[in-house]
């Protein structure tokens, strides 16, 4: 009922008005820093902060022509692509037995699979550092960072795909079996197409997380720079408008990906319908 919440006394109305104001303040608190950061990236003065002395794209021009930024972007994308591939495959594969088989110690296994999300990334970083450097005496590289990030991103894919599998109607698979599909065919023709949106969303999620990941990468990437690491090394020297510009670009990148991840299930459905229409016409 929409009018359930109506309140009578003046006190209650005041409380409601106060809460409305409070919520507004919260949104301001959440968005002001980010909005200011983007604002300052277009500001002409070179301190990267107030006052606004005019609008310019100069800092973006400087950022995109900086070879260090180029290198960082390339590394970031290479790492993110590998992390996405690994966590999508490993995560999807693990989601099946997690949901479907009668596991002994199911809760325990679930906790181990989810633990990398719960414990601070710092601990993942240092423990892998010890493993790679002190135990195996490996050289730190992009690859070691990929492994570290995958440990952190894979559980997210597991969670997303497992949630989709949980809601999966088993009757569909039985129907396919009844119509003569073997295990592989059922997987290929029925199950995977239906959980595909979840896998895709998980992959995009992993990609976004990888783009933004700082602490694990900081320990494991050695001499290379991803974009967050580059920004970090720059802000040690204070705020500059170029860094604001790079930061805004990174922000735009991850928010776009997030929006796509949210809209994806719908897009996939629509695309499929369009394909169906074409093929059946």
């Amino acid at each position: 009922m929409a009018h359930d919440v109506e309140v009578l006394s003046r006190g209650a109305r005041v409380a409601r008005a106060l809460l409305n104001g409070y919520a507004l303040a919260i949104y301001l608190f959440l968005f002001a820093p980010i909005v200011l950061l983007v604002l300052f990236s277009f500001n002409a003065n070179r301190y990267g902060t107030f006052p606004i002395t005019g609008w310019t794209l100069e800092w973006y021009r400087a950022a995109v022509s900086d070879y260090q930024v180029h290198g960082a972007v390339t590394t970031t994308l290479k790492v993110a692509a590998q992390v996405t591939l690994i966590s999508a495959i490993v995560g999807t594969a693990a989601a099946f037995p997690l949901v479907r088989s009668r596991l002994p110690f199911r809760e325990g296994i679930r906790i181990v699979l989810i633990l990398p999300i719960m414990i601070p990334g710092l601990l993942i970083g240092v423990s892998l550092l010890v493993l790679f450097v002190s135990t195996f005496h490996w050289q730190l590289s992009e690859e070691t960072a990929v492994i570290g990030q995958s440990v952190y991103t894979t559980p997210f894919v597991i969670l997303l795909v497992a949630a989709r599998l949980q809601g999966f109607d088993n009757a569909l698979e039985r129907a396919a079996a009844d119509l003569g599909a073997n295990t592989f065919q059922r997987l290929r023709r029925v199950v995977l197409p239906l959980i595909f949106p979840a896998i895709l969303a998980g992959a995009l999620f992993a990609f976004t997380l990888s783009l933004d990941e700082f602490i694990i990468t900081y320990f494991l990437i050695g001499a290379n720079n991803t974009l967050p690491i580059y920004i970090y090394t720059q802000i040690k020297f204070g705020i500059t408008p170029e860094v604001n510009a790079v930061a805004s670009l990174l922000l735009a990148g991850s928010l776009t990906l997030l929006a796509v991840a949210f809209a994806l299930p719908q897009l996939v459905r629509r695309a499929r319908r369009a394909v169906m229409r074409v093929t059946t016409a």
């Binding site: 980010i34 950061l37 990267g48 933004d212 700082f214 920004i231 802000i235």
Partner: peptide, 13 residues
């Protein structure tokens, strides 16, 4: 979901 680093950094400004 905006970069964690950026959210900390934005407070510098």
């Amino acid at each position: 979901w905006a970069s964690y680093l950026l959210r900390v950094y934005s407070w510098l400004t």
